[in-house]
Amino acid sequence: MAKVGLMIDYEYCTGCQSCELACKNEHGFGHDKWGIKMQEFGPYEMESKKLEWNYLPFPTSYCDLCETRVNDGGIPSCVLHCLANVIEWGPVDELAKRLDAKGSKAVIFLP
């Protein structure tokens, strides 16, 4: 069976950081421990009047893909709470197909 990963659409990740708090709530992590943390690239003015500016939540070593929730029939906490609904979760072969369909600005993590 394929490994399970997280696909993140950073075209539409709005940088809200809900994934961080949702993860902390689920795992009981303190302020300085994250299972996923939003990273910011930019804003850089690489050409005039155009800004390159992306947010990307980055899973850490402490991401267990919400094993307990999933075993109880749920979905990972960051996937449920993501405001822009840009985190998908599933076997990597399925995610790869979705990545291909999305076409650009997306990434698959295998935490």
Binding site: C16, S18, L21, N25, L80, H81, C82, L83, N85
Partner: peptide, 22 residues
């Protein structure tokens, strides 16, 4: 004990911002 988004909500579908999560 904890808060979670409600997937049965027609509009927000379980999604929450940091203010509610905290």
């Amino acid at each position: 004990q904890k808060v979670e988004g409600d997937p049965d909500h027609q509009l927000t579908q379980g999604r929450l911002c940091p203010r509610c999560l905290a």
